[in-house]
Design a protein around this nucleic acid. Structure first.
Lengths: 198, 198
DNA sequence: AGCTCAAGTCAACGGGCGTGGACATATAAA
DNA sequence: TTTATATGTCCACGCCCGTTGACTTGAGCT
């Protein structure tokens, strides 16, 4: 084979990119290093060389899509709307919004023993805690968990289970229902139902 | 090795049982036929002989836990409470209630390409449709999906992600919040919020 | 008893996997 | 130009997987 141009940083990025794409669509177990290397136009051995192991590569992919999972500018008030948007957004490749991708990346490999620890930590650190920190009042982690349950569930239903009841209905009512649910889930007191609706 | 007693029906059941247990805790991909056969005290070859293939075995396991996923006696009125109960119930082995087990079995292997079709069909047929059929009004499938999203999400959070914010709070408020959410999700009109609260 | 056939075991195969060491080559310094 | 080193390829190892065919052994029948 004609060896590829020698640019360490670029090939590293290429591998990370193809790994991200693969891990996003198939789970950790179902992706082979040969697939990833192939997509990046690189030999398999390079992956182990650069990232130590498959596990290391996966960890790096998750670390790469780190930081502000919550989009900048999301506040306590706009959170329900943002979550509702997230719960209905279809996953498209070459999307600049990476929120759904990150969540899906986590969900896909959630029950892979090798990736479990990494996934759990990443979820806690990057999605659960930020949301819990954003809301205030009592039991923030519980309320965040409730809201995220809904996001996770709907995402799994749509993307993994391929049951999309959301898009077969009018978008308006769906959005309204979801907003209502998220407000209820995030509400400070159990009885209260959301604040300003504007 | 000392060959086991010869009882076709019994060994078949033993294999199905150990397969169910394994598939429940690890995903389709992460369970080896050798594990299953080992648990059942049987040679690996018997699995392929009895069920044709690993896929066939998995299908049979899901078919075995078929039928009334909705517990008998659950009505439109008691559905929210039942779902709330399901969303908080911890999974324990040797449990006679098999609802959670069945759902978990489906969720664990949801993103395994080999098992995907079987899982999707089983979910649609055994959990989504029954719930949608139970409620009436407009967009039953949408409302069922919303409620099931919550069940799925919370189950994944607790069982797979190992983030249990539910049990670290008082059970009372948690239950109240969940009930409220399920009533909202299943409500006929978007604005309405559930009926009589006991 | 002896016979028969289902029930179960054993050994091996082909294939994919992640990984590591030996080798090749493009780039940059001397 | 020669040399040195980072960069990338090739190859093969060991492991585990699902599956198959040939063999063994138990149970039931006459």
């Amino acid at each position: 084979m004609s060896p590829r141009v020698k640019n360490a940083a670029a090939t590293r990025e290429a591998m990370l990119a193809s790994a991200g794409r693969r891990f996003l669509q198939e789970s950790y177990e179902n992706v082979g290093l040969r697939d990833i290397a192939g997509d990046a136009g690189v030999d398999v051995a390079l992956v182990s060389r650069y990232f130590g192991s498959k596990e290391g590569l996966f960890r790096e992919v998750l670390r790469g899509s780190k930081g502000n999972w919550l989009e900048a500018g999301v506040t306590r008030e706009t959170l329900p709307a943002w979550l509702a948007c997230l719960a209905t957004r279809n996953h498209t490749l070459q999307d600049d919004r990476q929120d759904l991708e990150r969540l899906l990346l986590i969900l896909r490999s959630a029950s892979s023993p090798k990736a479990a620890r990494i996934v759990h930590e990443s979820f806690r650190e990057n999605v659960l805690t930020p949301v819990a920190d954003l809301i205030d009042g009592e039991d923030p982690e519980l309320r965040a968990s409730l809201a995220l349950s809904l996001v996770i569930g709907s995402t799994i239903l749509r993307t993994i289970m391929e049951v999309d009841a959301f898009s077969t209905c009018d978008a308006g009512p769906v959005r309204e229902r979801l907003l209502n649910l998220f407000r209820t889930a995030l509400a400070d007191t159990p009885a209260e139902r959301g604040g300003a609706s504007a």
